[in-house]
Amino acid sequence: MENEAPVPLDPAEEAFVRAFGRAILTVPRVFDAELLREQGISLSEYTVLRHLSEAPDRRLRMTELAARCTLSLSGVSRIVSRLEGTAAVERVRACDDGRGWSAVLTDAGLTRLETAWPTHLASVRRHLLAHVAPEHLRTFAEAVGRFAGGEPPDSACAVDGPCGPPGYDEPSSAC
């Protein structure tokens, strides 16, 4: 394989690569801009709140939260700090070993997420789903999932399942 000459992309492959490259840069920027303009929350903050809302007891270790958000630990730590400043998230010692830290979604944070959800949903429908035929959604989701590694297996949203505003049980007071 080392001595094989690279095979150029055919026109359809080239068009796909270029369009996909534009989309992976443009779509998150549009989501972020609309959330900031209409809700005063960034896409990264929204994503942290969403993942916490889907977690058991609305709680995740910081390392797990960073992995689910595809952010660095320092990046998610900065976002959690901002969200702590608005009382949307609390940082607490991890229950399992007491050495690490967990982020916990507060009631105020859940309310914040529920308030921002319609804006994000409208943005997703307008800037993403409106451009994919319903009969292609499953295939597209599977292809992108293979490329990106997919959602964690315990994600609250499946390809066939609805994904409405989060409203999970109150976090338990004990670990």
Results as ranks from 00 to 15, higher is better:
residue 119 T to Y: 07
residue 42 S to F: 05
residue 79 I to T: 13
residue 86 T to C: 02
residue 156 A to V: 07
residue 103 A to F: 01
residue 77 S to G: 14
residue 157 C to A: 13
residue 70 T to I: 05
residue 59 R to T: 15
residue 167 G to T: 05
residue 154 D to R: 11
residue 4 E to T: 11
residue 37 R to N: 03
residue 46 Y to A: 04
residue 173 S to I: 04
residue 128 L to C: 08
residue 37 R to T: 11
residue 87 A to V: 13
residue 34 E to C: 02
residue 48 V to I: 13
residue 145 G to D: 01
residue 115 T to I: 06
residue 127 H to Q: 03
residue 49 L to P: 05
residue 90 E to C: 06
residue 122 A to K: 10
residue 146 R to E: 11
residue 110 L to P: 00
residue 150 G to I: 02
residue 51 H to C: 06
residue 102 S to P: 06
residue 58 R to P: 00
residue 151 E to K: 11
residue 67 A to E: 15
residue 62 M to A: 06
residue 127 H to C: 03
residue 171 P to Y: 03
residue 7 V to S: 14
residue 157 C to E: 10
residue 140 F to A: 15
residue 24 I to Q: 12
residue 161 G to C: 08
residue 14 E to Y: 12
residue 111 T to D: 07
residue 40 G to M: 07
residue 61 R to E: 10
residue 47 T to D: 04
residue 95 C to N: 08
residue 66 A to T: 05
residue 125 R to W: 07
residue 50 R to D: 07
residue 103 A to V: 00
residue 95 C to T: 03
residue 169 D to Y: 05
residue 61 R to M: 12
residue 149 G to D: 04
residue 30 V to R: 03
residue 9 L to A: 15
residue 84 E to G: 09
residue 141 A to P: 00
residue 158 A to H: 15
residue 112 R to N: 03
residue 134 P to M: 01
residue 23 A to R: 12
residue 24 I to S: 09
residue 69 C to Q: 07
residue 26 T to Q: 12
residue 73 L to V: 13
residue 97 D to F: 05
residue 163 C to Y: 09
residue 114 E to Y: 01
residue 45 E to L: 04
residue 143 A to P: 01
residue 145 G to Y: 03
residue 77 S to T: 14
residue 36 L to R: 15
residue 78 R to E: 12
residue 100 G to D: 10
residue 170 E to C: 10
residue 29 R to N: 06
residue 5 A to G: 08
residue 60 L to P: 02
residue 88 A to S: 14
residue 9 L to M: 15
residue 63 T to Q: 12
residue 148 A to H: 07
residue 32 D to R: 06
residue 74 S to A: 12
residue 114 E to D: 07
residue 144 V to W: 10
residue 103 A to I: 01
residue 16 F to C: 07
residue 32 D to A: 04
residue 108 A to R: 13
residue 2 E to T: 15
residue 106 T to L: 06
residue 168 Y to V: 08
residue 162 P to G: 14
residue 140 F to V: 15
residue 171 P to K: 01
residue 30 V to Y: 03
residue 13 E to L: 13
residue 25 L to P: 02
residue 29 R to H: 08
residue 6 P to F: 08
residue 164 G to C: 14
residue 64 E to S: 14
residue 100 G to I: 06
residue 174 A to E: 14
residue 63 T to A: 11
residue 124 V to M: 13
residue 16 F to G: 02
residue 11 P to G: 04
residue 117 W to V: 05
residue 172 S to R: 14
